[in-house]
Design a protein around this nucleic acid. Structure first.
Lengths: 254, 254
DNA sequence: GACAGGCGGTCGACATTGTCGACCGCAGTG
DNA sequence: CACTGCGGTCGACAATGTCGACCGCCTGTC
């Protein structure tokens, strides 16, 4: 495989850098952060700006991400086949369970949320489509770890971050848990990322049984759990939704 | 100004091409559509894929947009100052008016929706953040046309598309309407883009009185209009929300 | 079942193209 | 009023991306 295009990789790195830091960044900050000559960084930024991927605050001269990225991100969702077919099933699942529903796919070292149905009550909630969740401490993530070798590979050998006292932080425990998940066909995560929140997830696969994503419900531990375990009726709902979506994907080939 | 970076511009063109066509595109389709050699297009696509901006269907070998774009698009929203400050005001406006609220900024030849508050009832609605609306036939767009010379410039000299029988299609009428909008300080669009839908919009400006965006409410013409005109009470609500957001932006400089 | 035509992908020579580091003008600062 | 930092420009150089021919594969066809 021939090498990647240098200027493009650098442009991508700049975009990621801008996405990471919360505030706007100046030209010098960008060039030193990536070890580029100022002129080089400027040329890339100028082009990105022209294309709408980056915007420059005319007052301070600093750079931030541009609107075109939002538009393209939306287009990504429009084309996304898994998401399109899962929309109606996710809605049903939210109504049946009374809890928040997430749909996620593996992306880099985490789970990218591609669909989010609010819990059907009137509390204020913020849409989390486009955000990432960790692999080793969420129901979505653990499902993918258990079934997708690529996901397991992404974990690498680094020690895992502990978000709460219940987070699994060593790889052996995670692998053991994955075995259990494969055996019974679903995953849960009770207060492993956020205190007070429990979630139940199941795998979505395409017509060739490849793992393509996961669906989960997530809610207050008092509602989702009972006597210290997740409620079997909720598990059944999640698994049946996952099967329905998988079936939909399998049938959907022309 | 030195020239833009060729490979980057081409990569951007490829992304836009993939975003435009609804279905996945093959390598040859991409290269012929943009007039590139197949090898060149392949190199760019390979790099974009590596960076997560493009994904390849392993079965057909065709390309589509990648998940990284969704993540970056979300980051764009996170950093967006106008949006952050407008969130609470938009919520209030939706509650007070009982209608859908949109917040938009100028982007290329249209208005990009950066925030969307559902009408406060239980009907099913789809989030339109990240989508585009035309400049010459929506309240948001006409506000920007009236106050932002850049927006007016984007219209160019092309004939305007008619979405309904009430769409203003010649530039003279649009300019005349813009004069009216500047005089009274708000814009409306009654069934100019979608049959049965009316909207009312007002300008948002920063501390130096530059136009930075617009806010509008949008709803069924039967509710928004009365005796053929938009209801004055709704106009007042929209204008006061726009003023509040503008004030917030002005005060918010450290 | 051999063939043709299309696909995605590779390769290596070429010169276009992006890169580098010195330099510029400006704004804020002591 | 020098000084330091900023964003931005410039021009020489060669590294780099580009091109078009080529490869192997699959698919549909006669």
């Amino acid at each position: 495989m021939p090498g990647p295009i240098q200027s493009l990789s650098r442009a991508a790195a700049i975009l990621r850098l801008l996405a990471g830091g919360e505030r706007r960044l100046g030209l010098s900050e960008v060039s030193t952060a990536l070890g580029l000559a100022k002129g080089t960084a400027h040329g890339i930024l100028r082009t990105l700006q022209q294309e709408g991927f980056v915007e420059q605050d005319p007052e301070s001269g600093k750079y931030q991400l541009g609107a075109e990225l939002l538009r393209l991100g939306q287009s990504y969702l429009d084309v996304h086949e898994l998401r399109a077919r899962a929309l109606v099933w996710a809605d049903d699942l939210a109504r049946a369970s009374g809890e928040t529903v997430y749909l996620g796919v593996l992306h880099q070292r985490g789970v990218l949320i591609v669909h989010h149905v609010f819990r059907p009550d009137d509390t204020r909630q913020v849409l989390e489509v486009g955000s990432m969740q960790p692999l080793h401490s969420t129901a979505l993530g653990k499902v993918l770890l258990a079934y997708d070798p690529v996901a397991r590979g992404e974990l690498g050998e680094e020690p895992l971050e502990a978000y709460t006292s219940r987070t699994l932080t060593d790889l052996a425990s995670v692998d053991e848990e994955c075995g259990l998940i494969r055996e019974r066909g679903w995953a849960d995560a009770v207060e492993e990322t956020w205190e007070g929140v429990a979630s139940i997830g199941a795998l979505i696969q395409d017509r060739r049984r490849n793992p393509v994503g996961a669906v989960c419900i997530s809610g207050a531990v008092e509602r989702v759990c009972e006597d210290g375990f997740v409620r079997p009726s909720l598990v059944a709902s999640v698994r049946s939704a996952a099967r329905a979506i998988s079936r939909d994907l399998g049938a959907g080939r022309f």
